[in-house]
Computed example of a mutant assay.
Amino acid sequence: MNFETLKPQIKAIVSNAPLDVDARLLQICQLLETRVDYYNWVGFYFKNGDRNELKLGPYVGAPTDHTIIPFGKGICGQVAVSNQNFVVPDVAAQDNYIACSITVKAEIVIPIFVNGENVGQIDIDSNTPDPFTEADERFLEFVCAEVAKIL
Score class of each variant (00 low, 15 high):
2 N>H: 13
4 E>T: 11
5 T>A: 15
6 L>K: 05
8 P>S: 12
9 Q>S: 11
10 I>L: 11
10 I>Y: 00
11 K>G: 09
12 A>K: 13
13 I>Y: 08
14 V>I: 15
14 V>A: 04
17 A>W: 14
17 A>Q: 14
17 A>P: 00
19 L>S: 08
21 V>T: 13
23 A>H: 08
24 R>C: 04
24 R>N: 07
25 L>V: 01
25 L>Y: 09
26 L>Y: 07
26 L>K: 08
28 I>P: 00
30 Q>F: 05
30 Q>W: 06
31 L>I: 00
31 L>V: 03
33 E>L: 04
34 T>A: 13
35 R>M: 10
36 V>G: 05
38 Y>L: 04
40 N>C: 08
40 N>Q: 07
43 G>W: 10
44 F>I: 07
44 F>P: 03
47 K>W: 03
47 K>E: 13
48 N>T: 08
48 N>G: 07
48 N>Y: 10
50 D>F: 14
50 D>C: 11
50 D>Q: 14
51 R>A: 15
52 N>K: 15
53 E>V: 02
54 L>W: 12
55 K>S: 05
56 L>Q: 05
56 L>F: 04
56 L>E: 04
58 P>F: 02
60 V>T: 10
61 G>D: 06
62 A>T: 14
62 A>S: 15
64 T>R: 02
65 D>F: 09
67 T>W: 00
67 T>F: 05
70 P>M: 13
70 P>R: 14
71 F>Q: 06
72 G>S: 08
72 G>R: 01
72 G>I: 04
72 G>M: 08
72 G>K: 03
76 C>Y: 04
79 V>W: 00
79 V>P: 04
79 V>S: 01
80 A>Q: 01
80 A>I: 06
81 V>M: 12
81 V>F: 12
81 V>H: 14
84 Q>A: 12
84 Q>S: 14
85 N>C: 12
85 N>R: 12
87 V>P: 04
87 V>T: 11
87 V>F: 00
88 V>D: 00
88 V>T: 03
88 V>R: 02
91 V>H: 02
92 A>N: 13
93 A>I: 04
93 A>H: 06
93 A>E: 10
94 Q>L: 14
95 D>C: 08
96 N>M: 06
96 N>G: 07
98 I>L: 15
103 T>R: 11
103 T>P: 06
103 T>Y: 12
104 V>A: 14
105 K>T: 04
108 I>V: 12
110 I>Y: 01
111 P>Q: 05
111 P>H: 06
114 V>M: 10
114 V>H: 10
115 N>Y: 07
115 N>P: 02
115 N>V: 03
116 G>T: 01
117 E>D: 12
117 E>P: 06
117 E>L: 03
119 V>Q: 02
119 V>G: 00
119 V>E: 00
120 G>V: 00
121 Q>G: 04
122 I>Q: 01
122 I>H: 05
124 I>H: 02
124 I>Q: 01
125 D>G: 00
125 D>A: 02
127 N>H: 11
128 T>K: 10
129 P>S: 08
129 P>F: 07
130 D>C: 10
132 F>E: 01
132 F>H: 09
133 T>I: 11
133 T>G: 11
134 E>F: 15
135 A>D: 15
135 A>L: 10
136 D>A: 03
137 E>Y: 09
137 E>H: 10
138 R>D: 15
139 F>G: 00
140 L>K: 02
141 E>D: 14
142 F>N: 08
144 C>Q: 13
145 A>M: 11
145 A>K: 12
149 K>S: 10
151 L>A: 03
